[in-house]
Every structure is written in structure tokens, then in C-alpha cells.
Amino acid sequence: MTAPAIAQPAARRKEGFSAFEIFVFSLVVALLAIAIFGPLLAPDSIYSSDIANSLMPPSAANWFGTDDQGRDVFWRLIVGAQTTLLSAFLVVTLYSLIGVTLATVAAAGPRWLDEALMRVTDIGLALPGMIVALGFAAAMGASLRSAVIAMAITGWPITARMLRGIMRQTMEQPFVAGAQVLGVSKWRLMTKHVLPNSLDVLIVKWAGDIGTTVLVLASLSFIGVGAQPPSAEWGATIASARGYVSTAWWTVVAPGAAVAITSIAFGLLGDIIQVRRDPSLRGN
């Protein structure tokens, strides 16, 4: 006798990635690959001028044409990708460290310290980040390093404010009281119990922040307080080529498109991770 067929609940389907998500992921991976390996392949000529060859339109030899110094625009973009992305990662890492430290101190510390730190954060939030960064960078002397430092010291307030709130919520969880009853030190309580259970949301934010940071860094370089010529950094490249927009559009459009694509790609990556984590946002 055969047992009657029992309807098996369909095995929970692992949700696949949509074509769009795969597109964004591959774009980000490609950008990272270009930034890491691209410069190894670049010809040496990208920093030396060849005036006879200047402002040549895109061709088989120079895919994106050449600039006013006769340098290959395509390879300068590739080399610039490393400078740009590395700087952006550095900026986000630095201000995240500042934000995480201040949030942890505020959440763990006594009431007055929390209040004081949050009021300082309010001031930071109220100031327009880019203008302040511009001021700092100009004061430190225009260079890529100044721009990175300036953005790191102006970028932390949102991280600090968000994380401090999340940590306060995490501290209401019973396992935190449990750790206190066990007698863990304040340091261990915060670093081992509270912080690891509070970082999820911020990791999403930081992925998206890379995109914004690329844009702001390029802007600072464009107005002259960031990377300086002959750096291949994208903002600096646009700045030095802007006189030729009408005669040699490719010298400006190529790095401009690179900035746009990179910041949009990382922004979308942040959005995708966020929606994946919280399916209630899907469809927006």
C-alpha cells in the first residue's frame, strides 16, 4: 500500500537577483577592479605631454581622445579611478571611525556627556558640510590630502547621530542587561554586545556614502582645493579641461561621466542593500 501523497510545502525559494541588481553589482565590481588593477596596465605617457597630438578626437589609438597636453583621456580616467575611489574610501572610513567613536562614548557615557556630544553633533549637522570642507581644505593648503582630511572631519555627524540612537535602542535589549548582570566591563559591553548589534543600518549608509563622497571630492578638486594638476583625479581633470568644452568635448565629458556613473553606482548599491535588508521598502 502506498502512502497517500502529502502536499509538500514548496521549499522556500531563495530569492534571486533581478537583472537590475546584477547590473549594479557588476558595475561596482568593475569600478573596483579598474581602480585596483587599471593603473598597472596604464602606459607611462599619461603624465608626459605630446603637444603634436593634443585635443585629438576619440579614435582607435585613443579611445576617448586626447587632452590639451596630448595625453590619452581613457588611461587618465583609469588611473584617476584609483585616486578617486581610494580617497573616497579613506574619507568614509575616517569619518565612520570618528562617528562610531563619538556615538559609542555618547551612548555609554553619563547623561551630560551624551547631551554635550549630541549638541556638538547638532552643530555639525547644521553646517553645510561641503562649504566647511572647502574652508578647511583651503586653510590647510589645496591638495588631495587636505580635501580628504577636510571631508573626514565634516562627514561624521550623521553617522554619530544615527548610531547613537540605534545603540540606545540596542541597549534596551534584554541581552544587554544580561551582560551587565554577568559583570562585563563597560568597554566589553559596548564593543562586544551593543556595537555589533547596531551597525547593520550604517553599513548600508556607508556603501551609499561612497557615491556621494566621490562627487564631493571631485567638486572640491574642480574648484581647486582638492587634487591639483597634473593629477589624474577626475575633478582636477575636468577643471583643467573645462576651457576646451566647445572644441574638444571629450576631455570634459569622459571624466564627468566617470564621476556620474561611479556616484550613481555606489548610491544604487546602498539602496539595493537597504531594500534587501528591509523588504517592506520594496517597490519604492
Binding site: 535589549q173 534584554p174 542587561a177 551582560a179
Partner: peptide, 21 residues
């Protein structure tokens, strides 16, 4: 420290009372 070592507790909620990480 001695008090924390010698007096322990078990909570109601077995889901929220253990650090998931």
C-alpha cells in the same frame, strides 16, 4: 565583582536575552 559572579539571572524572553552575534 563578587556580587556579579555570585548572583545570576535567567530572563523570560529566550530570543532577546542572548546576543545574536
Amino acid at each position: 565583582r563578587r556580587f556579579r559572579r555570585e548572583v545570576q539571572m535567567v530572563f523570560q524572553d529566550p530570543y532577546g536575552s542572548l546576543n545574536p552575534r
